[in-house]
Amino acid sequence: MQAKILEGGFVEAPTDSARAFRQIMTAMAQPGTINTVVGAQPPAPLSVATGVVLLTMCDPETPVFLTPKFDTDEVRAWITFHTGAPFAEANNAAFAVGAWDDLPLHDFAIGTSEYPDRSATLIVETDHLSVTGATLRGPGIKDKATLSLPDVAAFRNNALLFPLGLDFIFTCQSDLAALPRTTKVS
């Protein structure tokens, strides 16, 4: 148990995180594309992709919120050991991990009109991620794209808040896709 949480981090942190960030950045810049990441072996129920995002983006400066299903001793110990990120309630979190139905969307920071960047990024664990489903339009998308989203109305409302709002990273095993607040979903 104790030894297990020490494992599953990046082997070569500087280059592994550089490669992972390029995939995450490409996903955020091109909503509707699915990118594959490698390098993390987090404890269940975290997926590989969620583990990679946490290792790449989180550190002691970024409070993390876990929904009850993901809030296990093992997950907490793994995140603490590998990133040093503190845990927080939803309203103070910079990153959040959870399944779509469990995330308290209205509690997260959406930024302020002077600092819209002070908003949470939600890592949404999904069972299924594919480039079929809801239609996406907006920055990063040539004409339109499609992505399997767990909801439509919530993302439409989120886009109406622009330039405020939440940003989403969807993870499924080793795959991830992203949906920034600028994307118009229909």
Partner: peptide, 28 residues
């Protein structure tokens, strides 16, 4: 790798992601 320490790169990477999510907004 790439001169900067890992924590600095994470801080810059977070700023880049927010910058991409809010096009044209200057992230400190």
């Amino acid at each position: 790798f790439a001169y900067l320490d890992e924590q600095t790169k994470r801080m810059i990477r977070r700023a880049i992601l927010k910058g991409l999510a809010i096009p044209g907004y200057q992230v400190p």
